[in-house]
Design a protein around this nucleic acid. Sequence first.
RNA 1: GUGGUUGUAGUUCAGUUGGUUAGAACGCCGGAUUGUGGUUCCGGAGGUCGUGGGUUCAAAUCCCAUCAUCCACCCCA
Length: 453
Amino acid sequence: MAQKPSIPKGTRDFSPAEMVRRNYIFDTIKEVFRLYGFQPIETPAMENLSTLMGKYGEEGDKLLFKILNSGDFISKVPQQMLDDKNSNKLTTKLSEKGLRYDLTVPFARYVVQNRSEISFPFKRYQIQPVWRADRPQKGRYREFYQCDVDVIGSNSLLNEVELVQIIDDVFKRLQINTVVKINNRKILAGIAEAIGEAERMIDITVAIDKLDKIGLEKVNAEMVAKGISETAVEKLQPILELEGSTQEKLDQIEQVIGETEVGAKGIAEMRTMFGYLENLELDTEVELDLTLARGLNYYTGAIFEVKSKDVQIGSICGGGRYDDLTGIFGMPDVSGVGVSFGAERIYDVLVQQDAFPSESLETTRALFVNFGEKEEAYCLPVLAKLRKAGINAEIFPESAKMKKQMTYANRKQIPFVILAGDNEIEAQKFTVKNMESGEQQLLNAEELIKILS
RNA sequence: GUGGUUGUAGUUCAGUUGGUUAGAACGCCGGAUUGUGGUUCCGGAGGUCGUGGGUUCAAAUCCCAUCAUCCACCCCA
């Protein structure tokens, strides 16, 4: 007990049964991505810390996993720094690499680094794990997979619309009822400007973000506590209490922020987007939600968040437009927009809804029971034929007791067991047992392939 | 980073006001059934009660520390 092996906090192993289900999710998502013309890329698990630092805000920097330099890293550090015991400063001396925190920043780095080979607009998808050093809790892990789709090098709002279609398509296929919440950073900036607190947009949005969680009064209190003036908070009230259709909401907001340049632009963008979306037959609900803020600071235009309607869990997909992410790497004026599907949360939703298709759980279709050397020799060529025909099949590798072999098939949920002993060999046939119904049939090799296909 | 929860068999948990040999269910292994699994019946293995210290004649039970865990906050997928 005392020395059971373990894995780091917030990480998980995936059993065969879990992998089958995870692959079902990944495959569904990939299929949809390809349908819209996106191409895959992969980037390394680790990036230079200089690439990662400062992109996710102060909070994000703290959550980066840093990789210790190799070799005798400590003796190169000046004694003075060791004595100071300032972790932040020391870190830059001890670590030059870190594990990726998301897929968007490495993607931006990739684009800048390979710009001469990429033809824009560049539509890529990327499905890989990311790592965050925060405390695990429900639906939160330290290692988890993101499934990103981004278009970079195009300002068109058509891209935003297409992303909503992708979201709709993916969750339709996965049979998850969703609501897509959309907001726009320009509107948020407009609001901040209109109430005379342009510099405090982040604080304001972070507070507004909690509206449905802690209520209006507490949100107001938090803003005041953060140093927002009371008159500004007062001006904000009509926006926090918005009601009605998207159209009506936009009209109301326009009255408050239409004067500001960013605000007007944000409103116009939203009008265009919702105009497109209205004419598409989407299953998912799409709504304008001003309380949607999203943490990552690099967003500049539309922001998205998708929630399950039936299962309460954090957002299962999110993203937005970032106008100048590549600028940090020396390639200005390239706009991108993308969303990220959270595979683990989608998994949790599907588990709770029991919505995994049963066919997807099968790995082996048929098992040959092993009776001994002579019988092995008889089965092997037919086994090869089955595989050639695309049927997943295996033979039990030793002539163990029947019970053991049957139990093996049962546990592995193999639907068919094939028996071939003296009688079958003599008749040049095989006995096939349907493990669910218990029925048995005596068939020749061709019939066998037919029934298993 | 802040606050809280819980650590007993492979798993989920029970364990009385501290009292002698720490239990159950499920799972696992074997047998009934040497060419038939999932059902049933019979039998068996498996725990230094998270770890270290303390109180006591006596600790799974009380106290302290430590580690782990889960949950909430911050933040986020």
